[in-house]
Amino acid sequence: MSFAHLSLYFMLGSMALFAVALRVRGVRLRDIAPAGGLTLAVLLVLTAVFDNVMIGSGLFDYNSQALLGIRVGLAPLEDFSYPFCAALAVPALWWLAGGSPAGATPKQPSPDDSGRED
């Protein structure tokens, strides 16, 4: 199995988890797109910088036969799927665990809500 196949499976799983979280929590994609896009951009830049540093310093390398062959500096293209997965899976898990989406306003109690349960 190549790194591209493995990356594809993780990306599909992250996208499915993200779609479920959007649906379950009623989050609109257009409300979170700016923050999500910025998060993804920062993660991609950090991946490009630090992967190149780590590979260049000899900390690790990849079997070239398992890669597509496209590189950004020294970092293989497949390495950039991990920030994509993190940018989708981390907020999805947060929302599914009960956290509120960024920018969401908390529900205000209605005037007839006395705060007691019947």
Rank of each mutant, 00 (worst) to 15 (best):
S2T: 15
S2K: 07
S7W: 06
L8Y: 15
L8V: 12
Y9W: 10
Y9F: 12
F10P: 04
F10V: 12
F10N: 14
M11G: 13
L12E: 12
L12P: 09
G13Y: 08
G13Q: 01
G13C: 13
S14R: 03
M15D: 03
M15G: 14
A16E: 07
A16H: 04
L17E: 11
F18V: 11
F18A: 07
F18D: 00
V20D: 06
V20M: 12
A21T: 08
A21H: 04
L22A: 06
R23V: 10
R23N: 05
V24A: 10
V27C: 01
V27R: 09
R28Y: 06
L29C: 04
R30V: 11
R30A: 13
R30F: 14
R30K: 10
D31Q: 11
I32V: 15
A33H: 02
A35C: 00
G37H: 08
G37P: 01
T39G: 09
T39N: 13
T39K: 10
A41K: 06
A41W: 06
L43F: 05
L44K: 04
V45Q: 00
L46F: 14
T47C: 13
T47Y: 02
V49E: 01
F50Q: 04
D51R: 02
V53C: 04
M54A: 14
I55G: 07
G56R: 02
S57C: 10
G58I: 02
L59G: 02
L59C: 11
L59S: 12
D61R: 11
D61C: 08
D61P: 00
N63H: 13
S64H: 03
A66T: 15
A66I: 11
L67D: 02
G69A: 07
G69Q: 05
G69D: 03
G69E: 02
G69S: 06
G69K: 00
I70Y: 12
G73L: 02
G73K: 05
L74S: 04
A75N: 11
P76D: 01
L77W: 01
E78M: 02
E78T: 07
E78W: 03
D79L: 06
F80T: 05
S81F: 11
Y82P: 11
Y82S: 09
C85L: 01
C85R: 03
A86Y: 09
A87T: 02
A92Y: 09
A92W: 07
A92K: 08
L93K: 05
W94Y: 13
W95V: 02
W95S: 10
W95E: 07
W95Y: 08
L96P: 05
L96G: 13
A97N: 09
A97T: 08
G98W: 05
G99L: 06
S100Q: 13
S100Y: 07
P101F: 15
P101S: 10
G103P: 03
G103Q: 06
G103H: 07
A104I: 03
A104D: 12
T105K: 14
T105P: 04
T105R: 15
P106C: 10
K107L: 13
K107S: 10
Q108M: 13
P109G: 15
S110F: 00
S110M: 12
S110N: 02
P111Q: 07
D112M: 08
S114F: 00
S114K: 01
G115V: 05
G115K: 11
G115A: 08
R116K: 05
E117G: 03
